[in-house]
Design a protein around this nucleic acid. Structure first.
Lengths: 106, 106
DNA sequence: GAGTAGTGCAACGATTGCATTGCACATCAT
DNA sequence: ATGATGTGCAATGCAATCGTTGCACTACTC
């Protein structure tokens, strides 16, 4: 099941931020809490929490409650789905633009 | 040759806008000028031109001069490269988080 | 129960991004 | 040459984003 075409820009907007990208890479290593993640970032814990919320809304991470701690985990399958959709779109463009070029030259 | 890891967020930021996404889809159909593209958009020609410039800087489109007209064309290979990088990252996450989970459960 | 650690929420300021309008310049057609 | 078309650049207004600080609340620890 792929995600809707119209939600793609929203997902990419979430990926299109250096801080969020860093958080995702960190989460790809191991799940962690907002406080733990903030310790490795040059910004406040609240700012990190906000970024994580953006990532969660984009479906790129999920949360897991451990007592008073909220652990965030990267969702690889979602990222794979994004990659698939992107590739499918690229394939469509390639073939369409190729035929246009062929028609122009032939 | 894939693009550098650090430029990935920049590329996704370019993709993370509804207007630019629409322009890309339109360009995936056939090359077109900024003025022609603006005719199908609810925003001004200058605004469209600015979006196209962003896409060009992200390496997602390329320009071709035809007299006084600047034609924009989508670069499918770049999109494919992005898809590949995204998928590779997702695969890495999957395997790493899977072993962590296995270790926690075992 | 007292103290500590982890979150969440709200208000604020600064920065960035998006779209607009107006103007100037280059190019094509007549 | 004249007029129309396609671009580019600059200034402005508006909105969203990002980060901060301060405070309150909940859940562990002792």
């Amino acid at each position: 099941m792929t995600i809707g075409t119209e939600s793609l820009p929203a997902a990419f907007a979430a990926l299109g931020d250096d801080t969020r990208w860093g958080l995702l890479q960190r989460l790809g290593t191991a799940p962690a809490s907002a406080t733990a993640l903030a310790a490795d970032q040059p910004i406040s814990r609240q700012a990190v929490a906000r970024h994580l919320e953006v990532l969660r809304e984009a479906g790129l991470v999920e949360t897991e409650i451990h007592g008073r701690e909220v652990r965030y985990r990267a969702i690889g399958s979602r990222l794979s789905a994004l990659a698939r959709d992107l590739d499918a779109l690229a394939q469509g463009w390639e073939s369409r633009l190729r035929s246009i070029k062929a028609a122009a030259e032939g």
